[in-house]
């Protein structure tokens, strides 16, 4: 699969497929079955599909009763109505009871922006993670959603599957195999760790790409001897950030580049040590002032923040104006 697809629509279609192999699968909805695509299951298996109207407390307890009688109960409604509203029914009747109730919730997060804040499910993951026996899964795309639903239907116990409304990019190829409870590395790299779930995985991938592009721009800008100010305007235009943030990024990243450049060129010349040189004016932070004149090695930077214990070479700390004077031994 490539392009975009909505996880809720794939979930609706997958339930129809699963209904073929699983005669005990029942789907319970709350008057949102067109939006959740649960109506596809209803059309395929009318006797195993139940609509109770928007009465989510009732729905969850009924799902529990059916599960206690050997059914695999899928409850399909919006995330806001799947969690906070019937929370007590989930708590006592499903999770403490460890019954086969699968909450397949759509329209999660703030992606329902225009509907206003009552429609934004932002507490749902926290609520569901607090319940004993409850497994929470937030698939990243349509490919994963289809595989997750199969696992959820076939494994015993309560599950919460958090799906989204819009069509979002498909990031997994057909060789993907979902593994319950395991994080999946979707991009290699060594500078930073970004952890994401659900549709934010794609956003995080885009952010990683943008950061990689930014790194190239910063380096090129600095290598050509341009100042950070010119870069700030470009960052502002390209990444849509505020003026102050753009100039902060430009200064900080240029400064970082310079620090790395000095370190690398010193090493190239066989220099391993430097003398810390601070500006010694009213803006110099005391921790940095205390380092002035002392000799350190690039490999073992000093503590530059006594509160956090962070270690850095000059120009690596936020807005640091100190310099590393190479020491030739």
């Amino acid at each position: 699969m490539t392009g975009t697809a909505s996880t809720r629509e794939v979930a609706g279609r997958t339930l129809v497929e699963l209904g073929r192999d699983h005669p005990d699968l029942v789907v319970l909805g709350g008057d949102l079955n067109k939006s959740t695509f649960a109506n596809l299951f209803g059309a395929a298996y009318p006797d195993r599909f139940f609509d109770f109207g928007p009465a989510e407390q009732n729905i969850v307890s009924i799902a529990a009763g059916m599960a206690a009688s050997g059914k695999v109960s899928v409850v399909s409604t919006f995330a806001v109505f799947s969690t906070a509203r019937p929370y007590d029914q989930l708590r006592v009747g499903v999770s403490q009871s460890n019954l086969n109730v699968k909450m397949v919730a759509t329209h999660a997060g703030i992606i329902t922006g225009e509907d206003g804040m009552s429609a934004h499910a932002i507490e749902d993951v926290a609520l569901m993670c607090a319940l004993p026996n409850m497994t929470v899964i937030v698939p990243a795309d349509a490919v994963e959603t289809a595989q997750v639903l199969r696992v959820v239907v076939e494994r015993p116990g309560p599950f919460y599957v958090r799906l989204s409304r819009p069509a979002t990019p498909v990031i997994h190829d057909n060789g993907f195999a979902f593994a319950l409870g395991k994080a999946e590395r979707v991009r290699e790299g060594g500078d930073a760790t970004v952890v994401a779930c659900g549709i934010m995985v794609n956003t995080a991938l885009e952010a990683a790409e943008a950061l990689a592009r930014l790194r190239v721009e910063v380096d090129a800008n600095a290598q050509q001897g341009y100042r950070a100010e010119g870069l700030a305007d470009r960052i502002r235009n390209e990444y849509g950030v505020s003026k102050s943030r753009a100039s902060l990024i430009a200064r900080q990243e240029t400064s970082n580049f310079m620090a790395n450049y000095i370190e690398a060129s010193s090493r190239d010349a066989g220099i391993k040590k430097y003398q810390w040189y601070s500006a010694r004016d009213s803006r110099t932070r005391p921790d940095h002032l205390a380092l002035h004149g002392k000799i350190f090695s690039f490999d073992n930077p000093p503590i530059t923040d006594t509160r956090t214990g962070a270690r850095n070479n000059p120009m690596q700390d936020y807005r640091c104006r100190c310099r590393a004077k190479p020491v030739i031994s």
């Binding site: 307890s61 009924i62 799902a63 059916m66």
Partner: peptide, 11 residues
């Protein structure tokens, strides 16, 4: 919660 649960067992 019990009456709803009973609907589940009855269905």
């Amino acid at each position: 919660q019990g009456l709803s649960f009973g609907i589940g067992t009855a269905l």
